[in-house]
């Protein structure tokens, strides 16, 4: 069953690639409009050291930004669990930050933080902290009524209530937040890079477009997609294994 879940998508991708190759060849489509998969593969192998060096930069931004979003998201959810009076302040603020069009404010970020990795890390964090915060907070609030009542009757301390009931109840919700957030981290890092950078996969994409090297552009797109899927899987599997008992 597990093999099927991996093999079927791979087989589909392979069939689509072969289909594209044959279709583009038969239709005689220009490589400047849509390059054939064989050309993309060639561009990928020829430019792999350069792509890989830039890939490392993007992955680094994505992972650091994601790590910070975990701290921020969980921290905010915890802050208004323990201080409910903060909720009316934190939630609207978080919604506002989440909805800031970072494409528009990117110039301000680059002016204040430079063209290095910091503004991209910040963009990844802004995009991914919200699902983690919202899901974790929803988890804290979804404690079973009867369980909460029993803890109250037994006079459980605030700490016991948190460690023995609220935290374990919230873990599956937190895992869902991680899933949602992780699926966006590579894309948001690349969007950050497209707005201004001299390194990263976004930079590879920008350079390929400006030099009309569409096979290289498609190679960067393929790498981006594969890495994004792999990272999402990694975090999904990591959280599923880490929190297996509570899911």
């Amino acid at each position: 069953m597990k093999d099927k879940r991996i093999l079927l998508p791979l087989l589909t991708a392979l069939l689509l690639t072969v289909g594209f190759e044959i279709g583009l060849e038969l239709a005689n489509v220009s490589r400047f409009i849509l390059p054939k998969p064989s050309l993309v593969l060639k561009a990928l192998s020829e430019n792999w050291p350069w792509i890989f060096a830039n890939l490392k930069v993007t992955v680094q931004e994505a992972i650091v930004g994601f790590g910070l979003s975990l701290i921020l998201g969980v921290g905010l959810a915890l802050s208004y669990l323990f201080l409910p009076q903060l909720e009316p302040i934190i939630v609207p603020l978080a919604v506002a930050i989440r909805n800031v069009p970072f494409v528009a404010i990117a110039p301000i970020l680059f002016i204040t933080l430079g063209y290095g990795q910091t503004p991209k890390i910040l963009i990844v964090m802004i995009v991914s902290f919200f699902p983690i915060m919202a899901n974790t907070a929803a988890g804290f609030q979804s404690v079973n009524k009867y369980q909460l009542e029993r803890f109250t009757v037994l006079r459980a301390s605030r700490w016991q209530l948190f460690t023995k009931l609220q935290l374990p109840t919230a873990l599956p919700f937190f895992a869902t937040g991680v899933d949602v957030a992780a699926s966006n981290i590579i894309i948001s890092a690349i969007v950050g890079e497209l707005l201004g950078t001299t390194q990263g996969l976004g930079f590879v994409i920008l350079m390929s477009v400006s030099q009309f090297r569409f096979a290289l552009l498609m190679a960067a797109v393929v790498v981006t997609t594969v890495v994004s899927i792999l990272l999402t899987w990694f975090f999904q599997i990591a959280t599923r294994n880490l929190f297996k008992k509570w899911l």
């Binding site: 079973n144 009867y146 369980q147 009757v153 006079r155 459980a156 016991q160 023995k164 374990p168």
Partner: peptide, 27 residues
């Protein structure tokens, strides 16, 4: 005092034994 409710008072991530011990842990 202790309370027994309709279904739902057991913690889903704890075994029967661990659920039985919960009250003692809290106390």
């Amino acid at each position: 005092i202790d309370l027994m409710s309709q279904e739902g008072s057991l913690l889903s991530w704890r075994t029967a034994l661990e659920n039985t011990q919960l009250g003692m842990e809290i106390l």
